[in-house]
Amino acid sequence: MNAAFVQPSWAHLAFAGMLCVLFLLLGVPAYAAQFSIEIPKDAVAPESEFVADVWLNTQGESLNALEGRLLFPDALEVAGIRDGGSVVTVWLDAPMSRGPGSISFSGITPGGYNAERGFLFSVVFRAKEEGVAALSFEHMQVFLNDGNATPAPVSEISAKLVISEEAPSSLSDVSDTTPPEPFSLALAESPVAFDGKKVLIFAAQDKGFGVARYEVCEGFFASCVVADSPYVLQQQSTDSFITVHAVDHSGNVRTAYLFTVRALMRYASYGILAILLCIGALLLLARFKRSYRK
């Protein structure tokens, strides 16, 4: 017996089409993060400056780490980078131009970050020659705040502008005269880290161009060294006056101090000894003058 052939109706075809669409939509994961570049104008003149802002849209996901590179052509040069106010609270590799045509960066946000518009950093570019300048991303990665650092897919929105003599010439108002925010110093010690040595912990925030470097000084008269936190103390007794300078990219400085009571007493004894020596020298000088007059 031959099976009867049933001609499919339009309703059946429409239902099958809906199933295919649902399968495709559910089978393709939504982007967990979207990186974008925003510039305030479409054209600039040679020797002009403009600011390019880099933003992150987490697309509803909680993210706690990211890394990547921002690419730019030879027609542009970096005049400055600022990360003040970034959603990245700890930079493992602060945004910096380490080679021609690229700015690499990586950082973390402990506790995670979830928002549609999160500022990462800004780049001040200077246009060098006429042409079309395209800004794009490369090797972008984000990681979910799920305890496993699970990689998540990303999308990217690039930008471009025209460099032309016909465009108005301008310089970006990117001056920064405000020092980094006040910060504190702390000592830490663990038998399982840094060979059990005492380390100095510090971190400063800057709302302008961001912190460029830290300078650590152990003692009143010791020379300072450029260092990062955590910093292994050279004087493990911690019997010293510790100073840390946070210097931003514009050269503004904020200083923090840390000293123990023992260190304060030691430096106070030095001061008292210096005063006594001065008094003794004055008394000897006065006695010598009296003897000379006789």
Score class of each variant (00 low, 15 high):
Thr89Ser: 09
Pro29Phe: 04
Leu185Ser: 06
Ser269Asn: 00
Gly68Ser: 01
Ala16Lys: 02
Phe72Cys: 07
Gly118Trp: 06
Pro168Thr: 11
Met1Gln: 10
Lys294Cys: 04
Cys224Pro: 13
Arg69Trp: 09
Cys217Phe: 05
Phe23His: 13
Ala16Met: 09
Phe50Arg: 03
Ala193His: 12
Arg98Gln: 13
Leu185His: 08
Leu135Thr: 09
Ser97Tyr: 03
Arg126Gly: 04
Ile103Tyr: 07
Ala32Pro: 01
Gln205Gly: 01
Phe202Lys: 10
Glu215Gly: 03
Val261Pro: 01
Ala263Trp: 07
Glu129Met: 12
Lys128Met: 13
Ala16Gly: 04
Gly111Arg: 13
Ala127Thr: 14
Ser86Cys: 04
Leu285Ile: 05
Phe220Tyr: 04
Ala45Met: 07
Arg262Pro: 00
Asp228Met: 08
Gly196Ile: 14
Gly219His: 08
Ala222Ser: 12
Leu63Cys: 04
Val6Gly: 00
Val199Glu: 13
Leu135Pro: 05
Pro182Ser: 02
His249Gln: 12
Glu156Asn: 07
Phe23Pro: 11
Gly101Thr: 13
Asp93Ile: 12
Gly271Asp: 03
Asn114Tyr: 01
Ser229Thr: 14
Gly60Lys: 01
Glu130Val: 14
Asp42His: 04
Phe121Thr: 11
Glu49Met: 09
Ser184Thr: 11
Asp176Leu: 09
Pro8Phe: 00
Val124Phe: 00
Met140Ser: 04
Phe105Arg: 02
Ser190Asp: 15
Ser170Ile: 15
Phe50Ser: 03
Glu67Ile: 02
Ser97Met: 12
Ala212Lys: 14
Ser86Tyr: 06
Ser237Leu: 10
Ile163Val: 15
Phe241Val: 07
Pro110Lys: 14
Cys278Gly: 00
Ala133Gly: 05
Ala246Asp: 06
Leu264Gly: 04
Asp248Glu: 11
Phe137Arg: 06
Met140His: 01
Arg82Ile: 09
Lys207Met: 07
Pro8Gly: 00
Ala222Asp: 10
